[in-house]
């Protein structure tokens, strides 16, 4: 059994790749790349953030949530309304993360009493309830949404760097969590919650904590999105399809890993870009099919598939 040392070597390579990628991404706005490509990268970074965040709860801790649009939306609206109120984006966007984290506690307190599929189902209900409430409030602009007044203050490069910064933060936070006793306890909860409680892990409290951390990162991503697009509406940011997108990416990429959610987000963003142009209605069908294939044949996602191929290429058996 050399599974652990192998994956450790793989992850060392992954960190080197990540560092090089970060340098390359920092240089992007200066190398005369098209605005459209920068926009695509920016979107990818936001999805990388939500994907890594969701993975902390759904992948590492094994609590599948269909309700992350709530945090994305809370972050987007908090940031958007604060910016309209004259607050600098540097305070408004983190405030989005804080409000999302607070919201996650309100949602987690009742729903983490439930286990497994019951928790997942409850989050669907919460997501729909929040979306409907938000669509009917005056402060959110109702179904017609809110336009951000001072959106012109950031250049595209600044928006790009904000998204890159948030994605890097999510990566660092994920790395820290996954290499800490906290992360070990989260995995123990995923594998056997009762055994975890036996050794003094408090599953309920740790679930609330990781939920809040994931919600905060998702909310910050929502805030950057709101500032960038300068227009948000409840049926967009709070929608159930936003929740399923946030869930799909880490599942496609590989749950519980660091590289999986990043790969999943990148693949999703690129495929999305092509699909929306050519087959506007069919992209969800494709993801549905992809999801079924992954669950049937490679539960480790694209990261798992890559590991398996790499082992085979080295001649180390299946």
């Amino acid at each position: 059994m050399s599974a652990a040392p192998a994956s450790r070597a793989t992850s060392r390579t992954a960190y080197a790749v990540a560092a090089l990628a970060l340098l390359a991404f920092l240089a992007v706005p200066w190398v005369g790349i098209s605005n459209n490509a920068i926009r695509l990268l920016l979107t990818t970074f936001l999805w990388v953030t939500t994907s890594l965040a969701w993975n902390l709860l759904g992948g590492v801790t094994g609590q599948v949530s269909f309700g992350f649009a709530v945090f994305y939306g809370l972050g987007a609206y908090t940031a958007g309304l604060s910016i309209n109120g004259g607050i600098t984006p540097y305070a408004a966007i983190p405030a989005g993360g804080a409000v999302a984290a607070f919201g996650s506690l309100l949602i987690g307190l009742p729903t983490f009493r439930l286990r497994g599929p019951y928790f997942a189902i409850a989050t669907i209900g919460v997501n729909e309830a929040v979306r409907i409430v938000m669509s009917n409030l005056d402060i959110t602009g109702g179904a017609s949404g809110v336009r951000l007044l001072q959106a012109g203050r950031f250049s595209q490069a600044e928006h790009y760097y904000a998204a890159l910064g948030v994605a890097s933060l999510a990566f660092l936070v994920s790395w820290r969590v996954m290499h800490s006793p906290f992360g070990l306890a989260l995995r123990a909860i995923r594998e056997d919650q009762d055994a975890a409680a036996d050794v003094g892990v408090h599953p309920f409290r740790l679930k609330l904590a990781v939920h809040a951390l994931a919600a905060c990162l998702t909310g910050v991503a929502g805030g950057v999105f709101a500032h960038y697009t300068a227009y948000i509406h409840p049926d967009g940011v709070f929608s159930f399809s936003t929740s399923t997108s946030i869930l799909l990416m880490p599942v496609i990429g590989g749950l519980g890993t660091l590289s999986g959610p990043v790969i999943g987000a990148a693949v999703y963003s690129i495929v999305q870009e092509e699909m929306v142009v050519h087959f506007p209605q069919f992209h969800l069908l494709l993801y549905g099919a992809l999801l079924i294939l992954i669950m049937l044949f490679e539960p480790g996602g694209l990261a798992g598939l890559w590991r398996r191929l790499a082992r085979r290429l080295r001649g180390g058996g299946p």
């Binding site: 306890a185 055994a195 975890a196 050794v199 892990v201």
Partner: peptide, 28 residues
């Protein structure tokens, strides 16, 4: 308590199982 039926985390390594035993703050 060392539980009857051993209740380890089968898909985690031996060392990870052991380290989880030291999760309580007094032992960490």
């Amino acid at each position: 308590q060392i539980p009857e039926g051993r209740k380890l985390w089968p898909r985690m390594t031996v060392e990870e199982n052991l380290l989880l035993g030291a999760f309580a703050p007094r032992a960490r």
